[in-house]
Design a binder for these strands. Structure first.
Lengths: 207, 207
DNA sequence: TCAAATAGTGAATTAGCGTTCAGTAATCAT
DNA sequence: ATGATTACTGAACGCTAATTCACTATTTGA
């Protein structure tokens, strides 16, 4: 029984190592251009061994993406929760999104390419999970907006539309930054984003 | 010589038919899950015949996406150009984006899935073109912002950031609409988008 | 120490599809 | 009408890479 725990630990270590190598390779070359052989040799195993850890290539990929995304959302939520004021929460939301992107360029590139989000049949599972996670995240942001309205920090309006808006702006900045991979860190734009979001760009003084 | 023109016409017709069928099938099943055999039979030809029109599967796909996107951007620009006032241009931009999405759900789904944007080597050509087109489009939107600033309709600020913002919001709304394919037409949100964009969501009265 | 069980190996199997090409049909020019 | 040219066909080929499995190595427990 003692031993089975050590075993379990070692199993997890190997599994994690495989996932981590897989992430690198998938990120660099996309799902379809990555072979099991590559992943195997990068993680120091033979091809067949991978099948003791994962059902197959598709599963391996799904698990890798899925766990990574989970970590991302939970990081973001944690950061945001630590803030008190609605506007600080908003700023933190932007900042932690950008943070993740800057620290996971290759992975984000993989997501942007979107490759492997629709692998036949089984692949839909990943797609569905990602969508569910995203919808859930929108709900979370919506909560921030609602809180902002309660505390008279934000205009009253449909909090869901506000959530779409903010996430859209974030994505747009991140996307462009990825495309034209620049010298300037993305984080520099944090206040620019939250400013535009809060104040808009129009000049008319209508409240 | 007369004849060669008729020939050319017929050739184009067939080519268009193939592209149109290919669009449907690719949109439904993605690049990798679509076979040349399917496209051939859908357009009433034998497999080999496709190779008289296109170099291969990848080229066929690239051409299909590429031409479709070209049409999209040109439609959008035309609509926008017809408007005079900056705010009308902005609203029209949103509206025509949404319009395209509503009329090309399957194609947009294909783009969202992003499948086939990074086919090895050659595929990069498509990716690069799409990126270039997008950057170009951002430039176009930037122009609208600049115009808005000149005519004292918009706050002064970095027009590029404004462009990212607007396109981001548009994308976010469209994206969510696609995911949760709803009864309500996306076009209903046009004024909501331009409102938030112009006025922001914050309550503070700072100009 | 030595079976039994477990983990790891990698060559061989297998399947799917893009692509080719020898052959057939259709069209054209004279 | 008929030979030449062009268009079309679809079975056969070939390649790639995921998956399997008979075998070897390692670890475990008595």
């Amino acid at each position: 029984m003692e031993k089975s725990k050590r075993k379990e630990m070692e199993f997890q270590l190997r599994r994690t190592e495989i996932l981590s190598q897989a992430e690198k390779i998938f990120a660099a070359k996309g799902f379809h251009n990555t072979t099991m052989a590559e992943i195997a040799s990068a993680s120091g195993f033979a091809t067949g061994t991978l099948y003791q850890f994962f059902e197959g290539k598709e599963t391996l990929y799904n698990v890798m993406v899925s766990e990574k995304i989970d970590r991302m959302y939970s990081e973001i939520r944690n950061s945001v929760s630590r803030e008190e004021k609605p506007t600080d929460k908003i700023e933190k939301l932007v900042e932690s999104h950008f943070h993740f992107v800057e620290n996971n360029v290759d992975f984000c590139d993989l997501l942007i390419r979107g490759e492997g989000l629709t692998l036949s049949d089984k692949g839909t599972i990943l797609r569905d999970k990602l969508i569910a996670d995203y919808v859930n995240h929108i709900g979370f942001v919506e909560g921030i907006m609602r809180f902002g309205m309660e505390t008279r920090t934000l205009k009253s309006g449909d909090p869901r539309m506000m959530a779409y808006t903010l996430l859209g702006i974030i994505r747009s900045f991140f996307y462009y930054w990825m495309l034209t991979n620049q010298d300037a860190p993305l984080s520099d734009k944090v206040s620019c984003v939250s400013d535009i979001f809060l104040k808009g760009v129009g000049l008319e003084l209508t409240a």
